[in-house]
Nucleic acid binder design. Structure first.
Lengths: 347, 347
DNA sequence: ATGAAAGCGCTAACAC
DNA sequence: GTGTTAGCGCTTTCAT
């Protein structure tokens, strides 16, 4: 079968009507299954037969123009490419949208604010019914104000004045879960190697760590908290682990800000001749499959709920769209999604 | 600024025309910068002012309905989420599309063929001008035949009868480059730890390996080719490396099917007390950033051109669309993109 | 230099 | 039960 050459005119409802010997209206009723029209089975059959014969397919553009519903959501993000998680957020959003017969119109803009505004403008021209504005890691954003023209949900990000609904990972609970897991395994000297950047994850996970300690009546010891960078250069998790293990009273468990850092910790522990989890337990964050897959023993970690966040964003957006005529909620919901524990063998 | 409540009617060209005291036609001419209309600057100014005042924005749906051009490409893929590369292909495609004022309408379907057909059907209803059908790793696919109704480009996959244009990585050249890199570094005993699955990458890289050997007059020695699985279970690269190094005449360099396997090889070499690259050189494939970033010394590897493939797919598709009325080409182009060498320190 | 009018493919109120 | 009709917002031809 050859690809169709030329922009041949596709059959319209009119063509179907003519062939079936009915009016175009009747075809519309049949196609859309309009109950109140009471089209008898016979007529229906005739119409469907004509439809099949012609290979008729409804034209969503025309439908949208008429009904002013496009069933399309805009998905805009800063940098789809640069993170392995991007796909999961998109997939979550797409799945939720698809469930309700909506599709995603995708745009990405670098960090360029001008481009961002142009992108939103384009989405609006295309009559998207709402916009999902996504960041590739949990952070504060400032989208162009034009975005307020249409229902919007922030995905993996938030706006300081909270004027837009958002969905983000529950960093505090994540940090709490990691720490509690260690506590429940019997540890009391628990170190936390935190990230050095001032981002929600850094603050949140630390808060969760402290809260868990407090809940279990373990005094907070600040010598057990290290601040490290990721990657080989600078003070990293490898060195932080060394320092920690040379404390007079070293930890028996280490909670690492992320899996990448946990790798370095593994290496340091290995070099020190310490075994995981017997001598020291380790827990990470992010559930980066490849790392967890590589490390021996498998790294127990806390996962970022990317798929679920994407799903929630689309789902909530669709809800906002449906209720667009309802009174505005007192304040846009700032939804948080739990970061689940992923058990492997390092605790 | 509050999000817009209610589906308030947006201003149309008619509203602008009324406010500017001109006909709707004139507004259209102004908005679209129609030269032949010769609208004097004064009128233009009046119209633009009205546009601004009303916050008018053209309705792409109406425009599309009228012109039967939607400037929209469908992007359909099996499993966006499951690979860290997905984002790069999407971004490449999106960038190329955006450059020509097109947008991507995204759908993903699991492996489910029924869903796949429904997805394409939906895209066609929405009048996409072409479809990019993507796979998440280089392989043979069999899209539903309905896809032939519209110009289509296969991305990172191909169809056995070659009836659709495709873009895939040049596995042979990649294997050749990897091997040649090793040869040029002075090696003559070069092992290849290949993958066990029967996929294009497996065959192609092996072919490239053999070709490079031949070009440099190095006899092919099949004891130097191992077949391994990835991951911890089964015969893997770790064990393959052990076997290789215990040969009577062991290799001085190892080309691993992918970076994941190279990791295991590193580990085996390390265990054997062999240093990289002094005792044994290692080269990988895929350029999986996280692995390359982790390994010491940094892993020299060959990259899969995901972004470029995505870009080419959209670009070529747009070209097909533009030339849709031209005579069909004798056969759809099967484009191949080079896999570039990424130099680090393992060779 | 500008406008009137037709029509893209569809939905839906209303008529018969 | 089915058809007539009036647009949705736009492009474009043809008149003036």
């Amino acid at each position: 079968m050859a690809a169709q050459r030329s922009r041949r005119k596709r059959p319209s409802m009119n063509d179907v009507a003519r062939l079936a010997g009915v009016s175009q209206t009747t075809v519309s009723f049949v196609v859309n299954n309009v109950e109140s029209a009471n089209i008898p089975p016979e007529t229906r059959k005739r119409v469907w037969k004509a439809i099949e014969q012609l290979g008729y397919r409804p034209n969503a553009m025309a439908r949208s123009l008429r009904s002013s519903r496009t069933h399309t959501l805009g998905f805009i993000s800063d940098e789809v490419a640069t993170t392995p998680y991007a796909g999961q957020m998109i997939q979550g959003a797409q799945d939720a949208a698809w469930e309700q017969d909506n599709l995603l119109l995708l745009v990405n803009t670098g960090a360029d604010a001008r481009l961002e505004e142009a992108a939103i403008e384009t989405l609006l021209e295309r009559q998207v019914e709402g916009i999902i504005y996504a960041a590739m890691y949990h952070r504060s954003v400032s989208p162009p104000s034009i975005i307020h023209e249409v229902p919007t949900v922030l995905l993996d990000c938030f706006i300081p004045d909270r004027s837009l609904p958002s969905v983000t990972p529950d960093e505090v609970q994540g940090g709490y879960t990691a720490t509690e897991t260690l506590i429940k395994a019997g540890h009391r000297r628990i170190a936390f190697i935190n990230n050095k950047d001032d981002i929600p994850a850094t603050r949140g996970r630390l808060a969760g760590y402290k809260k868990a300690l407090a809940d279990y009546h373990i005094p907070f010891d600040e010598t057990l908290v290290q601040i490290a960078g990721a990657g080989p250069s600078g003070f990293n998790s490898y060195e932080a682990t060394y320092q920690l293990m040379h404390l007079a009273n070293p930890p028996t468990a280490i909670f690492c800000f992320n899996d990448r850092m946990a790798m370095d910790t593994y290496q340091a522990l290995h070099r020190l001749g310490l075994s995981i989890p017997d001598d020291v337990a380790v827990i990470g964050f992010d559930n980066q499959e490849i790392i967890a897959d590589i490390l021996r023993p498998g790294l127990t970690t806390v996962a970022l709920p990317h798929y679920q966040m994407g799903w929630w964003a689309a789902q909530h957006l669709l809800q906002l769209i449906e209720n667009i005529d309802a009174p505005a909620p007192s304040s846009p919901v700032q939804h948080t999604i739990a970061c689940p524990l992923v058990l492997r063998h390092s605790v």
